[in-house]
């Protein structure tokens, strides 16, 4: 047997191993995606899809204010959620990594992300119990006499943001914590040794070195948040719809698949734009 045929056989076998995964991804991800992209260029007449290439769906998106508004709603909510979650999670991760004794850290972390493991649908619902008119917060505030009328805190943007932040604080605490403890303690010692005070060490050394972790977490938050349908649907009320809700409306009540496809492509583009903005930090060279 010559080496060439041996290599050929090895390569054929390797193709055999990788093929099922490739075929699966191609058939059930790439093809549907391309099909949807194509469909976004078709249009609907009655219940039929007309396969005539045009940009009508996109044109409609930019001219119909309800549609365009859903994108800005999505972006506003997602950005608010991302920023708030990072601002809340970073100190938490820092305290767990720095202040909590080493042997309790794992416990503290598991505890901090425990509600992560409830059902996603139920988690949004449970905020309804807290925020609704008869909910815990309103009853408590009424009970101690701080307010005389129940506050409108459920079924609006605030409720959506709270529900999202709750979820993503847990996610980000996890990613930022793992980033923080990976830092060699010598970086901080070196900075202190060279005369940096606590704040300078944090600002010039710890923060820049954990920035990749923050950006990865923030990007993940952005992607999951902007594509989510459940939380705004349960907590957001009907006044400010976000893009996924509008998409669901298209395939539900209106049976307008081409429009839903076009809106999905727009959602996709928003994620891609976020990726390009974060790409600089998503990978960093390590010494």
């Amino acid at each position: 047997m010559t080496t060439a045929t041996l290599e050929d056989r090895e390569r054929r076998r390797a193709w055999g191993f990788v093929a099922p995964a490739l075929i699966w991804t191609f058939a059930f991800f790439v093809v549907p995606f391309l099909y949807m992209a194509a469909m976004s260029l078709w249009s609907r007449q009655g219940r039929e899809i007309v396969r005539v290439w045009n940009l009508d769906n996109y044109a409609r998106f930019f001219t119909e204010s309800a549609l365009l508004k859903s994108l800005t709603n999505s972006l506003e909510i997602t950005l608010t959620v991302t920023v708030l979650s990072v601002l809340l999670a970073y100190p938490l991760a820092w305290i767990i990594a720095e202040r909590v004794p080493k042997r309790w850290q794992r416990m503290a972390l598991i505890l901090a992300i425990l509600p992560f493991w409830t059902s996603y649908v139920v988690r949004s619902y449970s905020w309804l119990l807290v925020l609704s008119k008869g909910g815990v917060i309103n009853q408590a505030l009424l009970g101690i006499g701080l307010i005389s009328e129940p506050l409108e805190i459920a079924s609006n943007r605030t409720a959506t943001v709270i529900g999202f932040v709750h979820f993503f604080v847990m996610l980000l605490t996890l990613t930022i914590y793992s980033n923080l403890i990976q830092l060699s303690p010598n970086y901080r010692r070196a900075a202190a040794d060279l005369g940096a005070n606590g704040f300078q060490t944090f600002w010039h050394v710890v923060l820049p070195l954990t920035l990749p972790g923050i950006m990865t977490g923030a990007f993940l938050t952005f992607v999951l948040c902007i594509g989510d349908y459940i939380t705004p649907q349960i907590l957001g009320g009907n006044n400010e719809l976000v893009l996924p809700q509008i998409i669901m409306l298209q395939i539900g009540r209106r049976a307008d698949f081409p429009m839903a496809a076009a809106l999905s492509i727009i959602l996709m583009l928003a994620v891609t734009a976020a990726y390009l903005l974060c790409a600089r930090w998503l990978k960093i060279e390590r010494a």
């Binding site: 090895e10 390569r11 076998r13 390797a14 193709w15 191993f17 990788v18 995964a21 490739l22 991804t25 191609f26 059930f28 991800f29 790439v30 549907p32 995606f33 099909y35 949807m36 469909m39 992607v223 999951l224 902007i226 594509g227 349908y229 996924p244 998409i247 395939i251 698949f257 839903a260 496809a261 999905s264 959602l267 996709m268 994620v271 990726y275």
Partner: peptide, 30 residues
């Protein structure tokens, strides 16, 4: 194994992670 375009293959296999579940579901549904 050394396979041609392995970076591309890895990219393809990872790709669905970067796309919202909603879009994956819609595409499959269509």
């Amino acid at each position: 194994y050394r396979l041609p375009a392995s970076a591309l293959q890895r990219g393809l296999l990872i790709a669905p992670m970067t796309v919202s579940y909603l879009i994956i579901a819609l595409g499959l549904l269509a």
